[in-house]
Design a protein around this nucleic acid. Structure first.
Lengths: 125, 125
DNA sequence: GTAGCATATCGAGTATTACCGATTCGTATG
DNA sequence: CATACGAATCGGTAATACTCGATATGCTAC
């Protein structure tokens, strides 16, 4: 393990700490495995687009069909559809088919919590 | 405003509702202005990368200098530095200079809330 | 079945982002 | 000042994401 650390970093740790090896070990412990990070990353990625945030905000008050969301976004049908697909793939929204209409709704209130917290966080900037 | 709505959508709303014009108006009300959406989008974008999530997780226990984070990420120095720069630009971390070392720390506990909620959200998938 | 409409998918072009070696900058030390 | 080193920036390239017209799919009604 320590072999993969660059010499420069090792020298730095030597200077910073009395027990550089222990410090190194604890740093390596911070290395979460990739599988645990991929899930939240996918959630944040789905949220990192203005169109998709706008969709979720519009769904706060309840479900909407795709054609109504198209009005809210004011974008071409194929663009809206692909964003809706991403939100669904990410598990942020659920769908319900009624005849030829597809209705979308927030899949978990945690999604709204994320939006609220991000809003508040950005507020204080 | 109604002029910008495609004919097909208008016909759909006509079929779906008794008062399509009122419905149209309420849909337009859902259109938040772009300036309000940009801030949370920037937050989520900063969070939508595995390296940057890993950095924030490592900072849960307290501040680390850039060279230590480099050990955690196991990535080239320039790569680590640019991710740290993005986190700082997004306001998610603060920095402190001590001599030639730069220490990074979580800027707001709301960041950790976002990570926790996203984790829980992804859990149930 | 046929026609029509809402929605989903495909594909190509464009834009954005990630990566990382090389270089520069800022600070401490001799 | 010269040197050393941690950290930030630059530049080019690869990878990924967004857009949107065209087309396909699914459902309804006739």
């Amino acid at each position: 393990m320590a072999d993969s650390v660059p010499e420069s970093t090792r020298r730095t740790l030597d200077r910073l700490y009395d027990d550089p090896d222990d410090r190194l070990a604890s740093l390596f412990d911070l290395t979460a495995d990739d599988t645990e990070l991929e899930a939240p990353r996918a959630v944040f990625k789905a949220l990192s687009n203005e169109h998709r945030i706008r969709i979720l905000e519009a769904l706060r008050d309840g479900e909407l069909c795709a054609c109504e969301i198209q009005v809210v976004l004011d974008a071409p049908q194929s663009t809206v559809a692909s964003h809706l697909g991403e939100l669904k793939d990410a598990g942020l929204v659920n769908t319900r088919r009624r005849g030829k209409w597809t209705y979308y709704r927030i899949g978990d209130t945690a999604v709204l919590q994320l939006l609220d917290i991000a809003d508040a966080l950005a507020e204080g900037t």
